[in-house]
């Protein structure tokens, strides 16, 4: 990975802007917390009425309604729970590429999302997909944990060949929540990954990080392309037709990823590593539906 500073001053300034705009109001499936849950609970926030049933807490009977309709109704309140956000960052060697590093881009996105999560008093579970499986960091909540989260992210080492599906399975998803997978998704197991996450009651967000070199490789002549993950080689002559073929494949790859994401109700965003972080983040937020 390049030696550039990932979380620099510019990153923090942009976080302040994000702070005002980004509100993650989904994935409230954790323990009681500050986030409104779809589940009914004991918070002060009114949600609905329903007729009294045996066993209901009589303190919640709405006597005004009884006076008006002569029937017993109880007030329902939203239960406030914390959201659970799992962020998976792919640290395989293919992510450590590009003049504007895909790795840095992925980490910044992860950092920004972590900030939003923690700012909303939600629970953040950082996972780094590695060659050996997955590196799980202790789940954290509260803005005080942000610095520690960034520290984790800064220490991520990129390299090797990662098995994303295996890594996600190993992450032991025990509760519903939102899983955000940041990767280039050079895998044939994407559908399996999506199926597993959906089965695990996860809202899924796929953030595909690619470099400009991958989007438009400016290759010339005949080259021996070497896979950065497994070292395999492929001799190609960069003719215009080959490059067109590659571009067609590239677009088909994005389209297929998008199709699979839609199939499993996942949100899908493609990010080119040289894009501005705020633009990227707004696009992600838009996809999430803020």
């Amino acid at each position: 990975m390049t030696e550039e500073k990932i979380f620099d001053e510019v990153f923090y300034k942009k976080l302040n802007i994000l702070r005002a705009k980004a509100r993650l109001n989904r994935a409230a499936a954790g323990q009681s917390g500050a986030r409104k849950s779809r589940a009914k609970g004991s918070s002060v926030e009114f949600s609905d009425f329903r007729e009294y049933m045996l066993g209901d807490d009589i303190r919640r009977i709405d006597w005004n309604a009884y006076g008006r309709f002569d029937r017993l109704f109880v007030k329902l309140f939203n239960e406030e729970k914390e959201g659970v956000f799992r962020i998976y960052v792919d640290s395989s060697a293919s992510m450590d590429f590009g003049e504007k590093s895909k790795a840095a881009c992925a980490l910044r996105i992860a950092g920004a999302l972590s900030y939003c999560v923690l700012e909303n008093a939600d629970r953040l579970m950082l996972n780094v997909i590695t060659e050996n499986g997955v590196t799980k960091f202790k789940s954290v909540t509260g803005r005080n944990a942000f610095a520690r989260s960034l520290e984790h992210l800064e220490n991520v080492k990129f390299g090797g060949k990662a098995d994303t599906l295996d890594a996600i399975k190993r992450s032991e998803i025990k509760s519903a929540g939102m899983s955000i997978v940041i990767s280039d998704f050079y895998t044939h197991d994407l559908e399996e990954i999506l199926r597993f996450l959906a089965f695990s009651k996860q809202e899924i967000m796929l953030i595909q990080v690619l470099s400009r070199e991958e989007a438009s490789p400016g290759l010339e002549g005949t080259l021996s392309l070497i896979d950065s993950e497994d070292g395999s080689e492929l001799k190609v002559t960069a003719t215009a037709s080959l490059m067109k073929n590659y571009k067609d494949n590239y677009n088909a790859f994005l389209a297929e990823t998008d199709r699979l994401a839609r199939k499993y109700g996942a949100r899908f965003v493609t990010v080119i590593s040289d894009e501005q972080l705020d633009e990227v983040f707004y696009r992600i937020m838009t996809k999430i539906g803020i």
Binding site: A93, S94, M95, F97, G98, K102, D184, Y186, T187, S211, E213, E214, P217, L219, G221, T222, L223, S224, L225, I226, D227, S228, E229, S232, E233, L234, K235, V236, L242, N245, Y246, N249, Y250, F253
Partner: peptide, 23 residues
């Protein structure tokens, strides 16, 4: 002989292999 060319690192040959199969 022209086929002996300089190596060029690429993140993944995922798409290139696909392209190669197409060709």
């Amino acid at each position: 002989l022209k086929q002996k060319t300089e190596p060029h690192m690429f993140p993944s040959l995922f798409l290139w292999n696909e392209t190669y199969r197409n060709m």
